[in-house]
Amino acid sequence: MGLVRAGFTATVAVLAAAGGWLAARTPPGAAAGEPRFPQLTLEQLTPAQRPLGEKILKISSVGLAGPYNPMIRSPEMAQRMYDLLDYLRWHTSVPTRLNEFAILIQGRLWRSQVEWYAHYPLAIKAGLSEQVAADLKANRRPEGMKPDEAAVYDFCMELSTRHAVSDATFARAKAVLGEQGVVDLTALTGTYVTVAMLLSMAEEGVPPGKEPPFKPGEP
């Protein structure tokens, strides 16, 4: 989630600027100061957790916060998830613009504050139109999508909401991405459902002082 290629020094600077992503949050339904998963620091990690924690700090814009805070409680699972995310973010056959768009689609379907907060700027940087993102955030089929974006949107939406993909939608996605790309896109979509579930279960929020992307009462 929200991964960026950055050196360890840059990551530490980002973490310092963030000022305690979870320490200052009050999760919905929980008393102040009683998060479901107190934020771990590198110094608190067990020998089983620390090697992965050090890897996370070298690539994550939120340090050990976000989905990593609950994930690392199960260090072997977290390592395997980390390896999967490493492939799906940095080595996938799906172009970055479409990859980030697909993550935003899941973020919107789940109303995942952290997924949208973390991946919206990455999607825009990768070339996704701000208008397309705005329509998606407003729970509308985006206007002005490029043909490859429309193919990804329809594929992800059908798979997520109907639990099936029509022959026509599959053919469009395959024409854009190829067989490997369709498989990679499906794995990405499912993985970010898992990430959204972890964030929701753990009641993770956006950094203190930042506006949540999805407001109460919005569709």
Rank of each mutant, 00 (worst) to 15 (best):
L109P: 03
W110E: 13
H163S: 08
H163T: 04
Q106E: 15
Y87N: 01
E149Y: 04
L136D: 11
W90M: 08
T161D: 06
I124S: 09
R111I: 06
M157Y: 08
E115N: 11
S74T: 14
P95H: 03
K146L: 15
H91G: 06
G127W: 08
Y120N: 12
D86C: 05
A150K: 13
Y82W: 15
E158N: 02
T96A: 15
R80G: 07
F170M: 13
E158V: 00
V132S: 09
R162A: 10
A175E: 06
N139V: 13
A126S: 14
A102M: 03
A150C: 11
L122I: 12
W110M: 13
R80P: 02
T161H: 03
P142G: 05
Y120R: 15
R89W: 13
I105E: 05
D154L: 08
A134K: 14
H163E: 06
Q131S: 14
A118Y: 10
L122R: 07
T92Y: 04
E149L: 07
A151P: 07
L109T: 00
W90E: 12
P95N: 01
P147K: 02
L84I: 03
V165R: 02
M157F: 04
W116R: 04
P75W: 03
R172M: 04
T169H: 03
F170P: 05
A138E: 13
W90C: 05
M145L: 12
R111Q: 15
Q131D: 13
L98I: 08
S112Q: 03
R162V: 01
F101W: 06
Y120C: 13
N139W: 15
H119P: 12
Q113P: 12
A102H: 02
L104K: 04
A151R: 05
V132N: 09
D167I: 00
P142K: 03
W116T: 02
S112I: 00
A151C: 05
G127A: 08
V165Y: 00
P147D: 06
R162C: 05
K174T: 06
G127H: 07
A118S: 12
T92I: 02
L159G: 09
D86H: 11
G127P: 10
P121E: 07
S129E: 10
P147Q: 05
